[in-house]
Amino acid sequence: MTAARRRWRRSALPGFGLSLGVTLSWLSAIVLIPLAALALRPWELGPAGLWASIADPRVLAALRLSFGAALAAAAINLPLGLLLAWVLVRYDFPGRRLADAMVDLPFALPTAVAGVALTALYAPNGWLGAPLAEAFGWRIAFTPVGILIALVFIGLPFVVRTVEPVLRDLPSEAEEAAATLGATRLQTLRRVVLPALAPALLTGFGLAFGRAVGEYGSVIFIAGNLPMRTEIAPLLIVVRLEEFDYAGAAAVGLAMLVLAFAILLLVNLLQRLLRPWAARA
């Protein structure tokens, strides 16, 4: 090994060239080249054709449904996730450890399994669907509400798992200090605890949204998949592929990715505003 090469990589440890080489080939072959295809294929339609294929009412309806439901589900996950994290960190009760482990269930459970299970529960003749339809006349499965439930299910662990460690590391001295300064418990929670958790909540929101917007398996069983009404954007990609409209499918996929990244970027910016004390490079 020459001194020049050693100087470049600045370490006494071996294997840099090998590991970086393996990593870059692995990354390029599996991720970068395929995503490049996604970014380039839609332009075969030409700018006007690309615009036409995205501005198609059916595509717009699907995108509106996917993004609207994902944002709503992530918003619902905020209070639910905060509640679960709070209870798991702050209180002790029988079954707490088991509950803590089970929070990861939506990560581990295959989405198709979650999909058929939720449908079995909320279908008009399902465990919950039948009584709800009978008592209130509510229809859940095969409506946007069903999609929302599936997205809440798969997104919840993201909020719990990002809030949990922050809550655990929150020094109780801060709350005690607030009490010595005369704050009521509610004031303490609102003015001391919640602001400290806000960045983590926002991160959890972003992760839950990111997962929900592209979710497929757990949604298509419960969604009903009616064009213009309950057809999510990922399903529309599949439909376009079945029509052998590759460029059209890629256009929907690209639109989804660009929109999702724009929203995540916004969440990221908001996060910086929320934590001026931790201005990071």
């Binding site: 090994m1 001194a3 100087r7 370490s11």
Partner: peptide
């Protein structure tokens, strides 16, 4: 464990750069 940008280290008279 680290590599200098310039200069020499000789241990018992032998340059150890490489």
């Amino acid at each position: 464990l680290d590599v200098p940008d310039a200069g020499q280290v000789r241990i018992d008279g032998r340059d150890v750069a490489g």
